[in-house]
């Protein structure tokens, strides 16, 4: 019988009474400060969730605390990426996965909209010209698109 990682008895620290622990409070304070800066000076910011010394329980509690908002976007870019607005507008939970569905990065972005969603002007120019070319091709051929 082979041992699994989960077989190693690891005690998860739990404050037990449903209140948020110290590490979590610190992160939430940071988020709140970042939100303030976003609203005042338009400063965007991000927190790398993988570098936080969080236990799975802390992580779960952060997720529950932030809740979920109105927007949820799934991107198909070399694997799946999920961008979710949390219950606090302007705080986005971003997950990047590779084609094998392994987590590459997980961040909280404090911004109007995460950069990866916005279409850049270069891309718009390119797609406009592509569409124009295709239409020209079709109207020259006299076919309906």
């Amino acid at each position: 019988m082979s041992a699994r990682l989960s077989d190693i008895p690891v005690k998860i620290e739990n404050s037990g009474n449903g209140t948020v622990g110290g590490g979590l409070i610190a992160i939430l304070r940071e988020i709140s400060e970042m939100l303030e800066r976003l609203s005042r000076y338009d400063d965007t910011a991000a927190i790398d969730l993988r570098t936080l010394p969080f236990s799975p329980a802390d992580y779960q509690r952060l997720r529950e605390f932030l809740g979920s908002g109105e927007v949820e976007i799934t991107l198909k870019v070399d694997g799946t990426s999920r961008v979710r607005e949390t219950g606090y507008a302007g705080v986005w939970w971003v997950e990047h996965r590779n084609p094998d569905n392994e987590l590459l990065a997980e961040l909280l972005e404090i911004t109007n909209i995460p950069e990866i969603i916005v279409t850049s002007s270069d891309e718009i120019t390119r797609s406009a010209s592509q569409l124009r070319e295709r239409l020209a091709l079709h109207s020259a051929g006299g076919n309906t698109p």
Binding site: V77, L104, D122
Partner: peptide, 17 residues
Amino acid sequence: SRRTFIKFCVSTASFLA
């Protein structure tokens, strides 16, 4: 695509801490 590239850079940055 630009998005693929952003994703790559964000992953690498996270990886590099």
